Amino acid sequence: MMIVEDHPLLIRGLRQVIEGESDMEIVGEVSDGVDAVVEALRIEPDVILMDINLPRKNGLQATREIKMAHDADEIGIVILTAYHDDEQLYHALCAGASAYFPKDVLPSTLLPAIRATAAGRCVINDQVLNKAEAFRWLLRAVEKLAPDRENVLDHFAPLSTREMEILTYITRGASNKEIAYTLKISQQTVKNHISNVLRKLLVEDRTQAAVLALRRGWIRLDEVGRHRSPGLGGPAFGTENED
């Protein structure tokens, strides 16, 4: 098992819980999303306990990249998050996670879920499901949340690496022109990506997308002002209507 978490106290707590189990062994620990992908592909653990609010790359991005690089059943990923609601659950499952819990989950709940995940099962709201059952549950849940939309699963598809990159620039207040210049792509391409981001997140504008990303921990607030290219000034959330 591998732990992906950047808070030492939480890592210590997870270690204490897991090391008391004879059938579980921690084979790796990392503290950011980029290293999570690298180490997961190197170690190939049976299960990963993954935080969402991570430096450099959030846990949903890391989950998606790991699952895209492996057969869907090879590595089970359990998402642990401080922000817990049904919509976040949908995003986690669409990214490829097998289970999703708040960080205050009890060991008596987490340990059976880890074992179920290692066995190739999914755990959703305390139900242990096979992959087909989990997909049907997800489809029904998303249809209920967005009953008037066509291709509802597409609206909960995980953001691509490029879309997540552009969302990060949006939270920094960058205009389409600035994003295009920094990423060396056309402004029309930026607009297309932003439209996809808004559609997938079910929000109306850039500000809502930025607030949602920060509130859910996909982008860390302490990183919003970092790594800015020359000219990327202005407020945290742009006011331009460049959708």
Results as ranks from 00 to 15, higher is better:
68 M>P: 05
36 A>V: 07
41 L>F: 06
66 I>C: 03
47 V>Y: 05
113 A>Y: 03
91 H>D: 13
23 D>Y: 07
84 H>G: 11
48 I>C: 05
70 H>I: 02
75 I>T: 11
30 V>E: 08
59 G>I: 03
22 S>K: 12
40 A>H: 04
22 S>H: 11
114 I>K: 12
43 I>Y: 04
69 A>G: 14
87 E>G: 02
42 R>K: 15
85 D>Q: 08
42 R>C: 02
41 L>R: 13
90 Y>I: 01
45 P>K: 03
57 K>P: 00
41 L>N: 14
93 L>D: 00
74 E>Y: 07
72 A>R: 10
22 S>Q: 12
81 T>W: 02
67 K>I: 15
71 D>Q: 11
107 P>G: 01
46 D>V: 01
35 D>R: 13
104 D>F: 10
94 C>E: 14
95 A>W: 04
41 L>Q: 12
24 M>Q: 10
21 E>M: 02
105 V>L: 01
58 N>F: 01
62 A>S: 00
29 E>K: 10
47 V>L: 04
40 A>I: 07
63 T>M: 03
77 I>R: 08
33 G>C: 03
91 H>C: 07
108 S>F: 08
30 V>K: 07
42 R>P: 08
63 T>R: 03
105 V>C: 00
30 V>C: 13
54 L>V: 08
64 R>W: 10
108 S>W: 07
104 D>G: 14
80 L>N: 00
91 H>T: 08
109 T>R: 15
88 Q>A: 14
110 L>Q: 11
98 S>K: 10
34 V>C: 03
27 V>D: 05
19 E>Y: 06
96 G>E: 09
66 I>N: 03
45 P>A: 08
55 P>L: 00
31 S>R: 13
65 E>W: 06
26 I>N: 05
78 V>T: 06
90 Y>R: 04
40 A>F: 04
88 Q>D: 10
100 Y>V: 02
111 L>E: 10
20 G>D: 12
54 L>M: 06
29 E>T: 15
105 V>Y: 01
91 H>F: 15
100 Y>L: 02
110 L>S: 11
74 E>T: 15
21 E>Y: 04
87 E>F: 03
36 A>C: 04
73 D>L: 10
31 S>H: 12
21 E>L: 02
34 V>M: 09
38 V>D: 12
37 V>A: 01
108 S>P: 06
31 S>K: 11
80 L>A: 03
108 S>I: 11
80 L>R: 01
77 I>T: 07
93 L>I: 15
84 H>L: 13
76 G>D: 05
89 L>C: 13
